[in-house]
């Protein structure tokens, strides 16, 4: 059976029941705001560590120390994985935060005789919720810089045993 749209579900409630539900969602909303803030703080710290690790790799390559550059790459991968997981966790927390806000806003609107439909509710979903990971991962120009050293790195990785 298809799920009842949220605006329809809220419209069909008594004002008192709706008000109780808003109270519950307000508390949940605050919890998810805090969860999102924690994610953002973690992401800030990760971004700094990633940038430091990238700088170290570039520095090693400039000094023609390919072995240490490749070694640092493992550390960078761990950090990038943590960044992607945190971004994904943030998207789940944000979706929940938005859902609670949606219930609060639509309930308030219904109380003020605003008429909702599927389209108007759909328009309330921020575009940012739909483009999260792809945009943030492509943000760094580190890979462009690294491509300058591609031949040196390839030589080390594929021919490593014979280079010395």
């Amino acid at each position: 059976m298809a799920k009842k749209p949220i605006w329809m579900e809220l419209e069909s409630m008594s004002k008192r029941k709706r008000s109780d539900r808003v109270l519950k969602h307000t508390a949940n909303y605050d919890d998810f705001v805090n969860a999102s803030k924690d994610c953002i703080e973690t992401l800030g710290a990760l971004r700094k560590s990633i940038s430091a690790s990238e700088q170290r790799i570039i520095k090693f390559l400039e000094k023609e120390n390919q072995a240490e550059a490749v070694a640092e790459i493992l550390r960078l991968r761990v950090l990038r994985i943590e960044q992607m997981v945190e971004l994904s966790a943030l998207s789940v927390a944000r979706a929940n935060r938005f859902y609670n806000k949606l219930v609060m806003d639509v309930s308030k609107g219904i109380d003020a005789n605003v008429k909702y439909d599927e389209q108007s509710v759909q328009k309330m979903v921020p575009a940012e919720l739909k483009t999260l990971v792809a945009d943030s991962v492509e943000a760094s120009d580190f890979y462009d810089i690294l491509s300058k050293y591609k031949d040196n790195l390839r030589e080390f990785v594929t021919d490593g045993g014979n280079k010395a």
């Binding site: 789940v92 979706a95 309330m124 979903v125």
Partner: peptide
């Protein structure tokens, strides 16, 4: 995240939120 009070599973969220990008999830 699921341990936070009021957590709703993405599959249980309203239809209007169906095309959200959950990254790796």
């Amino acid at each position: 995240t699921m341990h936070i009070n009021g957590y709703v599973d993405p599959s249980a969220l309203p239809e209007a939120m169906a095309d959200i990008d959950y990254g790796l999830y």
